[in-house]
């Protein structure tokens, strides 16, 4: 409701701008705001299969749930060949370990040591993994695999179950480890 009121307001504001624009088309409220009238309306139904992003606050997480235990079995079958049996890394990145190394000369960046949000893990597995069959996992499987990878990093107990409510709440060790762009950060040399 709130969104549609805002939307109407914005629409009126834009209409004003379009009316002031002598080049703009001039029939009907909607057409006046659309400058070229190109393309087709993207309704939620049209977008459903593509609208897969998950934000840090959990928006975009699908219904469903998955346990660390289910994740362990799935991981062995679909992930371990490249990432190692315990996510220690293989031909592909390590997914666990490295906590406490970021300020050392040999930092190890993993989901557990580096990633600021657990939601990113769900989003990435859902869109890109397993590498040999991306977008083949269901929501429950993706929750289970996320739970298992977080468990491998000591961030969830063995009996944990994740869903849209609990996943965004997982406390990530490096949650506050990120800053903005400080550049230009190098003094201009004297000449």
């Amino acid at each position: 409701m709130r969104v549609s009121v805002l939307g109407t307001l914005a629409c009126l504001v834009l209409t004003g701008a379009a009316l002031a624009d002598p080049g703009g088309p001039a029939t009907g409220l909607h057409e006046r705001t659309a400058r070229f009238g190109i393309g087709r309306a993207a309704t939620p139904e049209v977008l459903a299969a593509w609208d897969i992003d998950v934000r840090a606050d959990g928006r975009g997480l699908p219904p469903g749930h998955g346990s660390v235990r289910d994740g362990a079995a799935l991981f062995g079958a679909r992930c371990a060949a490249c990432h190692g049996a315990k996510g220690e890394g293989g031909s592909a990145d390590a997914l666990a370990g490295g906590q406490g190394t970021l300020a050392t000369p040999k930092p190890v960046r993993t989901v557990g040591s580096y990633w600021p949000y657990a939601t990113t893990l769900f989003d990435y597995i859902r869109r890109a993994m397993p590498f040999d069959a991306p977008q083949s996992l269901g929501a429950d499987e993706t929750y289970a695999l996320s739970a298992y990878v977080l468990h491998l990093n000591g961030l969830l107990p063995e009996d944990a179950v994740l869903d849209a409510g609990t996943l965004p709440a997982v406390a990530m060790p490096n949650r506050n480890g990120f800053t903005g762009d400080a550049r230009p950060d190098i003094p201009v040399p004297a000449r």
């Binding site: 992003d53 970021l102 990633w115 990113t120 990120f178 800053t179 762009d181 550049r183």
Partner: peptide
């Protein structure tokens, strides 16, 4: 209304500093 915090802008394409913090959204 905010960044989406994808893997490519958290796990990757962030610049780790000697103090263990990392700069994010270092575009230019």
């Amino acid at each position: 209304d905010r960044p989406f915090q994808t893997r490519e802008e958290t796990a990757k394409y962030t610049d780790l500093m000697p103090d263990g913090t990392a700069r994010q959204f270092t575009f230019v």
